[in-house]
Design a protein around this nucleic acid. Structure first.
Length: 698
DNA sequence: GAGCACTGC
């Protein structure tokens, strides 16, 4: 019945006109087959960045550090490394170009290799986790920011690079933020030591230029012009109480008046909300009496199976003519026959990670689901919050990538003015234990005074150091120092607790099993429980269940998965997410290789699950809880807070006296997720000092 | 008896 009111929102233009000049043309990457060079070279010369080529080279030639502002797609990411290479600004050494995402590093390097007329992995290559496609001939190396950071642990001066380009710096990923300080330090140390100079190029699409420049010792800023398409912005005339409803209303408002070949991108917050909106939209199109063009509705979020994600990229099909022929004029039909409309209902995955062709309309709810971290409680909380102005702008820009478009903001202009300018950098929002461990491994001991562009709070740094201290990774002398244990932990791409658990497993000769468990804990859940087939899923899972907890069950699942060689049908039948299982297998292989390199004997303890649980207790003693006297709930041993067993755990409805858990999530209650039954004696053995006041089980 | 934004090593 809500559907009948869908003209209730009237949009109006902002007083000062659309902020459309911000949005620029996007380079379309096409594979041109065999006759590469001439056509590709011509395409390169046609890019808006091309006329600025000489100037850019000159500037970078004489500068140590430069900041380059240009919208995504101005061609800067593909062209600038090539310009520098062609003018040999890199002096025959390697140019590193970082990207926040794997897929970007891979696809961009493919394109650049093509433009250079070389095989990928030769002059141009890429390096991301699990994949190193470079050789000794590689001069331009695209890589994830996290990869360069990990390399820096082995070589803090980054000696193999003469130029480091930090691309998409405005995204402020935790890795880019740490790299800012690390490259700056490498540059000045190399200068002091008389080693070949290191040039730093920071590329960003941000408006926050002054902040970047000030941080890099007033580095000059180069601006890039690009082609642009205007996006008209509309605001809601009054605050909206139900953004999902308003989004759907707006969609149909667009759908009734606009030519149907123009697709719509709608931003909502999460899987459940998206699926319900998709259903509502489909129901309305089915039940309406109006002659509307058909709508193809596609949900899009990261957890969606990849085959369903691919639907988004399919060209929108031609329209079913018969719907319109009966009472429409021919002129109307012409407009309609260009295609029916596709509407994509997405999370913020469509802001940066996924680019869809043909979007002319964006509907922005103005909200996003974000992780909020509280350093005092150590609790992560997933909350629906307002987007930042920068994020809203990013969403708006998605409407103008190929031609002019429109963006409907489901908030008033006054509300927009209240949004924060930019999203709080990740480094100020999350648990820092991994970052602190990495910085210490890089030889940086004074973390509180490290040269961050935006400092994380002192409390969160102290909390991280504290955790590392409890794990025996650091000692506090005159300064904070990494112990041999901490040094080994830093070698693994794992959060510190999991890294420590591996080291313990080595001592207990059960690395074989713990490698599996740790890998499964560090990827997204491999267990699927669809609402519609809940009973079926639980029945299928029954054969893996263990009374000792979720970790042992995960191990059982992995063994069964390996026994059928990762068979797809088996995964379907057993409600196992094959994609995440494959990732876990890759993680395991990587961790295994590191163990071998470090001369760790990878031994199996067979079916001795007690040893496995003991290792987990030794590594996770900070995440332990005891059953309360009345047997109803648990008390966390570290914070003395009341916590409960998450209903997804195999231990739900069981009442073991002591458990350790992988993580705590706060929703309606404080829930422990991924639990393992432990003996209280193991906890006090693991950390006698930690449990000095009260020994568990006494 | 609950509910899982998005990346990355």
């Amino acid at each position: 019945d809500k559907a009948n009111t869908f003209l209730s929102i009237k949009m109006r233009m902002p007083d000062d006109g659309p902020p459309s000049k911000k949005f620029k043309y996007t380079l379309q990457h096409k594979n041109n087959g065999n006759h590469v060079s001439d056509k590709l070279q011509q395409e390169r010369r046609n890019l808006p960045i091309y006329p600025a080529r000489g100037k850019i080279i000159n500037q970078i030639q004489r500068l140590d550090t430069a900041i380059l502002i240009g919208e995504t797609g101005s061609g800067k990411t593909t062209q600038i490394p090539q310009y520098l290479l062609e003018a040999n600004v890199n002096k025959n050494a390697i140019i590193a170009v970082t990207q926040p995402r794997r897929v970007a590093a891979i696809t961009i390097s493919q394109r650049v290799a093509e433009e250079q007329g070389t095989e990928l992995g030769q002059k141009v290559g890429y390096c991301v986790r699990f994949e190193d496609v470079t050789s000794e001939n590689t001069k331009i190396k695209y890589m994830t920011d996290g990869m360069l950071l990990r390399e820096a642990i082995l070589d803090p001066l980054m000696k193999r690079y003469s130029i480091v380009i930090l691309d998409e710096a405005h995204e402020r990923t935790i890795h880019t933020d740490v790299l800012f300080g690390v490259v700056k330090q490498a540059q000045s140390r190399r200068k002091a030591k008389g080693i070949r100079p290191l040039k730093i190029l920071v590329m960003s699409a941000t408006m926050d230029v002054d902040h970047f420049s000030a941080y890099f010792n007033a580095a000059p800023v180069l601006y890039l012009e690009g082609r642009q398409y205007p996006v008209q912005v509309f605001y809601a005339p009054e605050p909206q109480s139900d953004y999902t409803f308003s989004s759907i209303v707006t969609l149909f408002q667009i759908h009734r008046v606009e030519p149907p070949n123009k697709d719509v991108l709608m931003f909502l917050t999460g899987q459940e909300e998206i699926e319900s909106a998709v259903k509502t939209i489909r129901d309305i199109t089915r039940s309406t009496e109006e002659n509307m063009a058909p709508l193809v509705v596609c949900p899009l979020y990261a957890a969606l199976p990849s085959h369903a994600q691919l639907k988004v990229f399919k060209p929108t099909p031609r329209v079913c003519l018969y719907i319109y022929l009966k009472d429409k004029k021919l002129t109307d039909i012409e407009a309609i026959t260009e295609g029916c409309r596709k509407v994509i209902v997405a999370t913020n995955i469509a802001e940066t990670s996924v680019t869809i062709q043909g979007i002319k309309f964006v509907i922005d709810s103005g909200v996003v689901k974000a992780k909020v971290f509280n350093p005092n409680s150590g609790l992560d909380l997933l909350k629906v919050v307002r987007v930042s102005k920068a994020q809203a702008l990013q969403r708006t820009g998605r409407a103008g990538r190929e031609s002019a478009g429109s963006c409907y903001r489901l908030y008033t202009e006054q509300e927009f003015e209240q949004f924060s300018d930019s999203t709080v950098p990740e480094i100020q929002r999350c648990n820092l234990s991994s970052v602190v461990l990495q910085l210490l491994a890089l030889g940086i001991s004074d973390i509180v005074n490290f040269d961050f562009m935006d400092k994380p709070s002192t409390e969160s740094i102290i909390a991280a150091v504290h955790q590392l201290h409890n794990l025996g990774a650091v000692v506090k002398e005159t300064s904070i120092k990494l112990t041999p244990v901490g040094r080994k932990m830093a070698a693994f791409p794992l959060e510190p607790r999991l890294g420590k658990t591996l080291l313990i497993a080595k001592e207990h000769n059960c690395l074989e099993e713990i490698l599996t468990i740790v890998s499964l804990l560090s990827v997204d859940s491999v267990i699927v429980t669809p609402q519609s087939k809940r009973e079926e899923a639980l029945a299928a899972r029954q054969k893996f269940v263990s009374s000792e907890g979720d970790h042992v069950m995960l191990l059982n699942i992995y063994k069964a998965y390996k026994a059928v060689k990762g068979n797809r049908e088996w995964c379907m039948e057993n409600f196992i997410n094959q994609r995440n299982m494959r990732t876990a297998t890759e993680v395991r292989k990587q961790l295994h290789d590191i163990c071998v390199r470090m001369d760790f004997p990878v031994k199996s303890c067979g079916n001795d699950s007690t040893t496995i649980r003991k290792c987990l207790a030794y590594g996770f003693f900070m995440n332990a809880a005891e059953l309360q006297k009345d047997g109803s709930e648990y008390t966390s041993l570290s914070s003395r807070k009341t916590v409960s067993i998450h209903p997804s755990s195999v231990l739900f409805r069981c009442k073991p006296a002591y458990v350790i858990y992988n993580e705590l999530v706060k929703t309606t209650k404080c829930y422990m997720r991924d639990l393992c039954v432990v003996d209280p004696d193991w906890l006090s053995e693991a950390a006698p000092a930690y449990f000095k006041k009260k020994k568990p089980g006494t």
